[in-house]
Design a protein around this nucleic acid. Sequence first.
DNA 1: AATCTCCACAACCGCGCGCAT
DNA 2: CATGCGCGCGGTTGTGGAGAT
Length: 161
Amino acid sequence: MVRNPLRTNMSNNTRVKQGAWSGEEDQKLITYIRRYGIWNWTHMPKAAGLARTGKSCRLRWMNYLRPDIRHGNITKKEEDLILELHRLLGNKWAAIVARLSGRTDNEIKNYWNTHMKKGVGNRNKLKIPTACDVEVKPDHNDSSSHPCPHVAGGCVPQRFL
DNA sequence: AATCTCCACAACCGCGCGCAT
DNA sequence: CATGCGCGCGGTTGTGGAGAT
């Protein structure tokens, strides 16, 4: 994740931090936005005392810090909706997310790429089995240890347990 | 216990669009 | 009309953790 933890911002020659956000940085961003709102992502980081690009701040806020976001626990209902919307809209994550309250495009995109992508594209066209049906892992027969999110009540990211 | 492999996901990058000048 | 800026979107990468060997 941390590709180049401290890199020079070529536009203004200041050092910008990359990689995972610390709790302190999160707090700075939240506090600043609560107090002053979002006025300009490009110039805000400096005003907020953050050595980050505006882009990085925006992403962090939009995908993780916004108070109206629900993390993890994608329900079967949501998953069905994602499938249907993806069938209709394709990879238009922003459009899909607009109909899923409390979710972010990044989250849905990640979820799709990791849990639903395999086999689904073809399934939509050809009605062939899902990833679940195709990729039967050894323990898939054991419903008690079913690792697949396609099962109702599916997996919950461990960090939220 | 140590090492390897795979998976999930946070974060980065490049591109395109809309708006102001 | 051309240009520059700011923002949002979609694709991709890299890390950490869990499970397998």
